[in-house]
């Protein structure tokens, strides 16, 4: 290492000041201008997080949002060299530490995950899928769009304004999120059973009949006509909106 401990310490002191606002003695600095670095760094981080989580930033009181941003950036060592990915670290930091803010605002984990999912799917690398556009929805093996995620929420953050969600809304909510050919991210509300059906399709292409059998075997529950039609309608809609890409060649 060619860098002396002294230079390293000075660099570390400046970086630490930018993250925490606590300024150690650094020789030769301009005491007023050094503040600009703290301001600029904080503004970049806050701006990126606010853009990634506009609903959460709006939902929380301003002071609490800013306190969270400050806490995250001062305590967490951001690992991604790509700044657009940093908001995921924010979510993981809060979720990983079972942060007290989640106790105060129980919908916050779902809200953050909901918002991050949109960014992640919008930005994620293209995933190739081997499928044909010709086939029969009822009889061909269906190929699920690989650019998708299935989420489980405790609160309906995908259905209601965050401020209108109350404790009585608590339950189990399932959402399929996918990216269509135009790059748009689409969220589809679904039941636990439909989420499971999508899980089967994520494993491998299957026909609707195979999906019925798989479900019935797993849950030891025969699907009646109405339930089968409900699944078929869901899959037709999924195909129309490109959650199902097409059919196995």
């Amino acid at each position: 290492m060619l860098l002396t401990d002294t230079t390293r310490q000075h660099q570390s002191a400046l970086a630490s000041y930018c993250r925490t606002g606590n300024l150690a003695v650094i020789p030769g600095i301009h005491p007023e201008n050094i503040r600009e670095y703290r301001r600029l760094v904080y503004n970049v981080v806050e701006d990126i997080l606010r853009n990634a989580y506009p609903l959460a930033a709006d939902f929380l009181p301003r002071e609490e949002w800013e306190a969270l941003v400050n806490e995250f950036f001062s305590r967490h060592s951001c690992q991604s060299p790509q700044v657009w990915y940093m908001p995921k670290e924010f979510y993981k930091y809060l979720a990983g530490n079972d942060h007290p803010v989640f106790e105060k605002y129980p919908i916050l984990p779902d809200l953050l995950l909901f918002e991050w999912t949109e960014t992640e799917l919008f930005m994620m690398e293209d995933k190739a899928a081997d499928y044909s556009i010709s086939g029969d929805l009822l009889f061909s093996k269906l190929v699920l769009n690989p650019e998708h995620l299935v989420l489980a929420f405790d609160f309906p953050v995908h259905l209601k304004n965050a401020r209108q969600i109350s404790g009585t809304d608590k339950g189990k909510y399932y959402v399929a999120a996918h990216r269509d050919a135009e790059g748009e991210v689409i969220f589809t509300d679904c039941s636990a059973a439909l989420a499971r059906i999508l899980g089967y399709l994520a494993e491998k292409p299957q026909t609707i009949l195979e999906l019925f059998h798989r479900f019935e075997q797993e849950y030891r529950l025969p699907l009646n006509e109405e339930q089968q039609q409900h699944i078929i309608r869901f899959l037709q809609n999924a195909y129309q909106h490109q959650l199902i890409s097409g059919f196995k060649n």
Partner: peptide, 25 residues
Amino acid sequence: SYAKCDNAHLYDLLPIPFTGDAVKH
């Protein structure tokens, strides 16, 4: 400049100390 220190990205460009060892480094 440097944008990462103590294993943390800062997402901004911080000035390097103008020192001989920093030149070599």
